[in-house]
């Protein structure tokens, strides 16, 4: 028998992002666990990087926090060197290079990056812990990925759904914001019901393309919505906090 130090922990929780035509929604629950214990009921997993980029991290919380810190540092250096905010696809590539740099002692973290591309479209990039990445329309990761992703495949990609006869154009490629928001909240309430590591609170970021009206946000209670945009007359970022069951 040999004892060995295990440098990694799995801290539970789930993250999720969905891209719309001109917006992106990035969400995560706020529970942090270790085994059967809850370490805290409020540990953010979703972070605003710039006015057009929001990063969700899930897996080993310490690695996740350090990784976000380093990404933010690189974004500041880039701002100083190039006098502009890093575009979303550049952030995606940067995250790949940063993750792959740790190929043989990886950050034990699944990343989902959401935001607005330079062409104004909503985008979601998902990563594995060593940097493989892909642009997608939606992605769930973390403890309840197995519960949430099939639901999104069905509701966002319309997998296993036959378009109703007589409807021209078939299924839509992008859904409106209010619909996306309700799919996100439903995903998390359901994951909370079925997964012990998910719950406590839902923190949800909405990034709106430049010039887009906040239509779709008005259905939410104003007390829960907070604008965290950095510069005016560009993209806009909102945070929405909602309660999830705490049992």
């Amino acid at each position: 028998m040999q004892r060995q130090f295990n440098p990694y922990t799995e801290n539970g929780g789930t993250i999720l992002a969905i891209a719309g035509a001109d917006f992106a929604v990035i969400a995560g629950d706020t529970r942090q666990t270790e085994g059967f214990n809850i370490q805290t009921r409020y540990a953010p997993k979703v972070f605003r990087l710039t006015d057009k980029a929001v990063l969700a991290v899930n897996g080993f919380a310490a690695d996740g926090n350090m990784f976000v810190k380093k990404v933010k540092q690189r974004l500041e250096w880039y701002r100083h060197a190039h006098a502009k905010d890093m575009p979303l696809r550049a952030i995606a590539r940067l995250i790949q290079t940063m993750l792959y740099a740790q190929r043989f002692f990886p950050y034990y973290v699944y990343n989902i990056l959401g935001g607005i591309e330079d062409d104004g479209s909503g985008a979601v990039y998902s990563f594995d812990p060593v940097g493989s990445y892909e642009r997608e329309t939606c992605r769930a990761a973390g403890a309840a990925q197995q519960l949430v992703q099939p639901f999104l495949d069905n509701q966002i990609y319309f997998k296993n759904q036959v378009p109703p006869p007589g409807v021209a154009g078939g299924h839509p490629t992008h859904l409106p914001l209010d619909r996306v928001l309700s799919i996100v909240t439903d995903s998390f309430t359901s994951a909370t019901e079925r997964h012990i590591e998910v719950g406590d609170g839902l923190e949800l970021y909405v990034v709106l393309a430049k010039g887009r009206s906040p239509q779709g946000l008005e259905g939410l209670r104003a007390a829960h919505v907070r604008e965290v945009t950095g510069h005016t007359d560009g993209e806009r970022v909102f945070v929405i906090n909602q309660e999830l069951k705490k049992d």
């Binding site: 880039y78 550049a90 590539r93």
Partner: peptide, 15 residues
Amino acid sequence: AFTYDEPIKVESVTQ
């Protein structure tokens, strides 16, 4: 280009 998947700016390369 490798790190950021975008062409470098003219001013940045000059700097």
